[in-house]
């Protein structure tokens, strides 16, 4: 959880009435110190279980097989005799002495590892991790001692057997990054009782739509290499270090959602680097278009009144036959003229 810097939550509220929807996007930041503190407990738990998990593999290493270690030590001593540093007469006693201290060290390592496992079962994760590391340090010390006893370069066989432990342990200690569902911190930061973690609003974006309902989808990237620092809102890729920019993108995104609800084609969302979506000109100029529509409404009202006055002046109730027909034709012609005027503006 080294990269545990900041978590974000996006709260979306939609309220719709008639044909208008309002969308509010809040971007809040979690208290990273508190999350970090809690995260360390989770890390200890995760590591302790990782070391328990590899226990069968670790104990299957030749290091813990007394006979095999004996063989490796013998081989290393024979190599010392072959290069002339050890007298063949001393082989047996050297073997006995080196084996004796190696056996003693292995027992201590085994016990330490078992103690650490027991502490894990007792949920004393921090102490357990310390004990696991003690066992690792004991193995490293044994490696140094055997290397020294067997004149370093001559200890190849024994050292290779001991490396089995070191490699497995280092692998478990490094751990893989969590995927989203496996990350215990996701559960921690989203629990209701932990809502106070989200104490600061980083940004708030509001947007109104004019047609239909608005909708938004938030997608956390599942790629373990990047999800901690990336989330996507309907294809808008946002890096944690570009948060300020993201607040504007969210606004643009809300417009895109409206556009899609009206069946207007959007840019290809499958594109990985779809960072700045193109905004449809008709939607972008919506405010101007709205003003034009209001002007047209006023104009329409004015012509409508003129037409009604003209109809009343014709006194149609008192006309009949050819006279009535002529009056109606004149009203129709006048309406056609008004329509032509409205269309030309």
């Amino acid at each position: 959880m080294k990269q545990l810097i900041t978590f974000f939550i996006i709260v979306i509220s939609l309220s719709s009435f008639h044909s208008c929807a309002r969308m509010v996007v809040n971007v809040s930041t979690a208290d990273s110190d508190r999350v970090q503190e809690e995260g360390e407990k989770y890390i200890d738990r995760m590591k302790a279980y990782a070391f328990v998990e590899i226990k069968p593999l670790v104990f299957a290493c030749d290091l813990f097989d007394s006979d095999k270690m004996n063989t490796y030590i013998s081989k290393d001593i024979k190599e010392g005799i072959a290069v002339g540093t050890i007298a063949s007469d001393d082989e047996a006693i050297l073997k006995t002495n080196i084996k004796s201290f190696t056996d003693a060290a292995i027992k201590v390592i085994q016990n330490t590892y078992k103690q650490a496992t027991a502490l894990t079962e007792q949920k004393k994760y921090s102490e357990a991790v310390d004990r696991f590391w003690d066992s690792y340090n004991l193995v490293e010390q044994l490696k140094k001692d055997i290397k020294h006893e067997l004149d370093n370069s001559d200890a190849a066989n024994s050292i290779e057997a001991i490396e089995c432990f070191s490699v497995l342990y280092a692998e478990a200690a490094s751990g893989d990054r969590f995927n989203l569902l496996g990350d215990p911190m996701v559960s921690y930061i989203t629990k209701e009782e932990n809502l106070p973690l989200w104490e600061s609003t980083y940004n708030r974006t509001k947007s109104s739509t004019f047609f239909g309902n608005a909708d938004i989808a938030v997608v956390l990237q599942e790629d373990p290499e990047s999800y901690n620092n990336n989330y996507a809102i309907k294809g808008v890729r946002v890096d944690a270090d570009k948060l300020i920019q993201s607040s504007f993108d969210v606004l643009a995104q809300s417009i895109n959602v409206v556009a899609s609800s009206q069946g207007i084609a959007l840019p290809d969302k499958g594109e990985q680097n779809y960072f700045y979506p193109d905004v449809i000109p008709e939607i972008q100029n919506l405010a101007t278009e709205k003003n034009k529509l209001a002007d047209k409404r006023k104009e329409y009202e004015a012509y409508r009144k003129l037409l009604i006055v003209n109809i009343l002046n014709k006194n149609l109730d008192n006309k009949s036959g050819e006279e009535l027909k002529t009056a109606i034709d004149e009203i129709k012609a006048l309406w056609a003229t008004y329509k032509a005027k409205m269309a030309s503006n």
């Binding site: 002339g84 540093t85 007298a87 001393d90 002495n97 006893e149």
Partner: peptide, 18 residues
């Protein structure tokens, strides 16, 4: 661990474990 020493004896060609 093995209670031994690497010694350079007078007249020897190399060090020896004793």
């Amino acid at each position: 661990a093995s209670k031994s020493y690497s010694i350079m004896f007078q007249g020897a060609q190399a060090v020896h474990r004793v």
